[in-house]
Simulated assay, not measured.
Amino acid sequence: MQNHWVVDLSFDEDESRTSCTASLSGFSAPGAQGTGEARRNPTDDGDSVIGEELAAARACHDLAHQLVGRAAAGIEGHTHVPAHPAL
């Protein structure tokens, strides 16, 4: 069986903050969504790319942790033994 999931990153920015939502979609993909945020120090020059990269990394990290948690719950449902899968 072949499956394909897509991670969509959407951003919201203002002068000092960038937030990102990482949404997972695709056939049989869980409806998972991660969030991340980056804040710019007021003394730093504005560079939206840096904020987007950091916010995206944090959103993907959040999404990954949610998926590991779902996998652990699935393992435990089958084995009835606590699972601690590593990320």
Results as ranks from 00 to 15, higher is better:
Gly51Thr: 08
Arg70Gly: 08
Val49Ala: 11
Leu63Val: 02
Gly69Thr: 13
Gly34Leu: 07
Arg70Asn: 02
Gly34Tyr: 03
Asn41Leu: 10
Leu63Met: 03
Ser48Val: 15
Gly51Asp: 09
Gly26Pro: 06
Gly69Glu: 05
Phe27Ser: 12
Leu24Asn: 14
Glu52Gly: 10
Ile75Tyr: 14
Glu53Lys: 10
Ser48Arg: 14
Asp45Pro: 09
Asp44Ala: 07
Pro30Cys: 02
Gln33Pro: 00
Glu52Met: 15
Gly74Cys: 13
Asp45Trp: 05
Ala56Ile: 03
Leu67Ala: 00
Glu53Ile: 08
Arg70Pro: 00
Gly34Ile: 06
Phe27Gly: 13
Gly26Gln: 02
Arg39Ala: 09
Leu54Val: 15
Leu54Lys: 14
Ile75Asn: 06
Thr35Phe: 07
Gly51Trp: 09
Ile50Lys: 10
Ala57Trp: 01
Pro30Gly: 08
Thr35Met: 03
Thr43Met: 13
Ala72Ile: 04
Ala73Thr: 06
Ala57Met: 04
Leu63Ile: 02
Gly74Leu: 12
Leu67Gly: 00
Glu37Gln: 11
Ala38Pro: 00
Ala29Met: 04
Asp62Tyr: 00
Gly34Trp: 10
Gly34Gln: 01
Gly74Ala: 13
His78Trp: 08
Gly77Val: 08
Gly31Ile: 03
Glu53Pro: 05
Ala32Tyr: 02
Leu67Phe: 03
Cys60Leu: 15
Ser28Phe: 10
Cys60Thr: 04
